[in-house]
């Protein structure tokens, strides 16, 4: 079977589910004839036609609003924002309506919409194209926030997001879009939306991460294992909201140490939520203070400096060593 990239896995999941479920509609800027700015929706216009794959005007607020209307009337829209940095004008619709529709109507209406957006830095893009603001959505009750980090998880989690009856913010780490490939059987098998994924088992230290930072974290974990004998347990959170704390706590109770790695700015990031949960529920097991390795509390810099903004393999390795020496 041919190995595919993460962006191809997104395409494969959309293709599979649109074939299986006629109520699914795609909308976004340049997603139809052009196939999307990153080619996530390539060939879907040709296959499913203009009624199901819609090019919209350059108006994110409108994209979000139309999708809510569609979702409340029986369609399952999958809307694409070209970049996460363009999403702010759609906030009102997403926060004031999409997240609340079920509650507002006492369950009579749900809002089965998926808002897809490429997110994160590392591709030498200009302003507004590199930020990681997943925490903004994770704070809102009624939204799910899902971030895959491999072609297989992109496929399985996107299927699950589309099938979910409530709104899902589906953030795709664009730096990983074509960074590696994986064999992803096109079986229509969804992955659970409420659990983390343990990518590497270990006893010494738990590395908790998501999105593109999974890549650096895995490199660091391998390096720590091979050269220092420090065995890391690597957890891909995958679903930022609702957070599967049970699995993270379990791991930290075993290892006694935890580093949270995320690309987003530190202050009030999702890492803070995880650390707070560990303080509440795993304090008795901790052998060292929980550490966060994150972006800085600045605007994501222009691309010449973006490498310095994002957590590096070296930083993870160094922090892990320090933690092992803490006790």
């Amino acid at each position: 079977m041919k190995a595919i990239t993460l962006v191809e896995a997104v395409n494969q999941a959309l293709d599979y589910e649109m074939s299986a479920d006629e109520s699914i509609v795609l909308l976004g800027e340049d997603i139809a004839k052009n196939g999307g700015v990153f080619r996530a929706t390539l060939d879907l216009f040709d296959k499913f036609g203009a009624e199901r794959v819609l090019d919209t005007p350059l108006a994110e607020s409108m994209i979000a609003g139309i999708a809510i209307g569609m979702a409340s009337q029986g369609l399952k829209p999958v809307a694409e924002f070209q970049f996460m940095g363009f999403i702010y004008s759609a906030f009102d619709h997403i926060i004031s309506h999409a997240s609340r529709l079920r509650n507002r109507t006492r369950g009579r209406l749900t809002c089965p919409v998926v808002y897809r957006a490429p997110y994160g830095g590392g591709i030498h893009a200009p302003e507004h194209h590199s930020e990681s603001t997943e925490a903004l959505f994770a704070h809102i009750p009624g939204l799910r926030v899902v971030i895959p980090s491999s072609p297989a998880r992109a496929y399985g989690l996107l299927l699950a997001a589309i099938r979910n009856p409530d709104p899902v913010i589906f953030l795709e780490p664009k730096r990983l879009y074509r960074l590696f490939k994986q064999v992803v059987p096109n079986t229509g098998q969804a992955l659970p939306l409420d659990c983390c994924f343990t990518l590497m088992p270990g006893d010494d230290i738990t590395l908790v991460t998501w999105g593109a930072m999974v890549y650096e974290t895995m490199l660091a974990a391998k390096q720590l294992g091979e050269t220092q004998g420090i065995h890391c347990e690597v957890i891909d959170v995958a679903t930022i909201k609702p957070l599967d704390m049970e699995m993270i706590i379990h791991s930290v109770q075993k290892t006694g140490r935890c580093i949270i790695i995320h690309e987003a700015a530190r202050n009030c990031g999702v890492g803070a939520e995880i650390a707070a949960n560990l303080a509440e529920h795993a304090l008795m097991s901790l052998l060292a203070p929980v550490q966060r390795i994150t972006g800085y509390d600045t605007i994501m810099p222009y691309y010449r400096l973006e490498k310095h903004y994002m957590p590096s393999v070296n930083k993870i390795v160094h922090t892990a060593q320090e933690m092992m020496e803490f006790v």
């Binding site: 491999s150 960074l179 994986q182 064999v183 343990t198 699995m247």
Partner: peptide
């Protein structure tokens, strides 16, 4: 065919191993 109008996506032919245990709760 990466198309993006801004930025440059890194590209490689590296093949990831198949997903490790994605029924994580069994390990617990």
């Amino acid at each position: 065919n990466q198309a993006t109008v801004v930025g440059q996506l890194s590209h490689s032919e590296t093949i990831l191993e198949n997903e490790p245990d994605i029924k994580p709760k069994t390990a617990m």
